[in-house]
Simulated scan of single mutants.
Amino acid sequence: MKKSSSTWSGFTLIELLVVIAIIAILIALLLPAVQQAREAARRSQCKNNLKQIGLAMQNYHDSYDLFPIGGASDYLRAPLVSWQVRVLPYLDQAALYGQLDLAGTLPAASYSAGNRSMVPYQILADGRQLRQVLLPTVRCPSDALGSVRNTWALGNYGASLGSQFTQSNRHPSAAACEPFNGFSEKTTNWGDTQNTSLVSGVISRAGAAIGIRDILDGTSNTILVGEILPMCVYGDSTGYDFGSWSSSVSACNASAVTVTPINDFTPCSALGAKRRTSYPTCAAYSVGNATPESAWNFAFGFRSLHAGGAQFVLADGSVRFLSENIDHAGTYQRLGGRSDGKLIGEF
């Protein structure tokens, strides 16, 4: 009689280890690709946000023959809102805008702390204050550093003061951190004036009324809005609303400047070990409120967490990605200045 035989087809230990090693290698190869695809999607969404903002600015200009002001004649009085609040009706937020009391005529009880001069503190129909509203259109999904700070909802897009002189915090140790002012086209500190001839960019936080007629260099050669990282501006304890999309004091208002190089992360202590410092001595200040973020000559630059640069809206409404390696002293400053009369090449 023929004896039956059986064979065992299982894996040996060595074969199992080889399979595991192959799977690990495949995962290691695929993970960066997945992360890059996710970042590409986030960057695309950020670009779409900027396109919406650029269109909103153009529509606002069509209605009023000027771009929205970044502040008021006196930025210590009502309504104390940013340009982004003013363009809400053009960002599909007419219902939100319709609730706002920009004239300060509502009773004090309609405001947190009863201050009618600060519209961001206005209590809305749903019980929130304006300053607490998270608005997706003003947030870049690539920024994972935080969407709220000190109960203020943050934003990632700042209007451009252009190539403007920007003095750091007047604390002696922070005041030493002003290496970029030598690049400035206009020397009025922070553009705090209503005299348009003293403002390099398109929007002034002091309420200078600027329109396309004032952009003598051409709308396709002038930065209107760009990306910022709100957690890289000022410190938590002192800059209570810096980085808010709704406040006139905020970096989202009209304080971002081209004098600071794109993606200079010297003031970004929120990045921790990932921070790149161009001027390490300016990152060491810790006396009083002289934090790295209060070295304002650094802190109010345009920056993003997109690799290699940041995205900008030009005054014609188009969106461009500018490399952090752009000619800083020449091309970048000329893109900041709306009427410097200087020629500009490809960028």
Rank of each mutant, 00 (worst) to 15 (best):
D62G: 01
D62F: 07
D62Q: 11
D62P: 00
D62H: 09
D62V: 03
S63L: 11
S63T: 10
S63P: 00
S63E: 14
S63C: 06
Y64G: 02
Y64F: 13
Y64E: 02
D65H: 12
D65M: 13
D65W: 09
D65G: 04
D65S: 12
L66S: 10
L66V: 10
L66M: 12
F67M: 06
F67P: 05
P68E: 05
P68I: 06
P68Y: 15
I69W: 06
I69M: 11
G70F: 15
G70S: 10
G71M: 11
A72C: 06
S73F: 04
S73A: 13
S73M: 08
D74H: 08
D74N: 15
Y75H: 11
Y75G: 07
Y75I: 13
Y75F: 13
Y75L: 11
Y75Q: 12
Y75R: 15
Y75T: 14
L76S: 12
R77P: 01
R77M: 10
A78C: 01
A78S: 08
A78D: 04
P79E: 00
P79A: 01
P79L: 03
P79C: 01
L80A: 13
L80E: 06
L80P: 00
L80C: 06
V81D: 00
V81N: 02
S82I: 02
S82Q: 01
S82A: 05
W83S: 13
W83Q: 12
W83I: 12
W83N: 06
Q84S: 08
V85N: 04
V85T: 02
R86E: 04
R86K: 15
R86F: 01
R86L: 07
R86Y: 03
R86G: 04
V87E: 04
V87D: 06
V87T: 14
L88R: 06
L88A: 07
L88I: 05
P89E: 04
P89A: 06
P89L: 08
P89C: 02
Y90W: 03
Y90H: 05
Y90F: 06
Y90P: 05
L91R: 14
L91P: 12
L91T: 09
L91Y: 11
L91E: 09
L91N: 15
D92T: 12
D92K: 15
D92R: 15
Q93M: 05
Q93E: 03
Q93W: 01
A94E: 15
A94T: 13
A94H: 11
A94F: 11
A94W: 09
A94P: 05
A94V: 10
A94R: 14
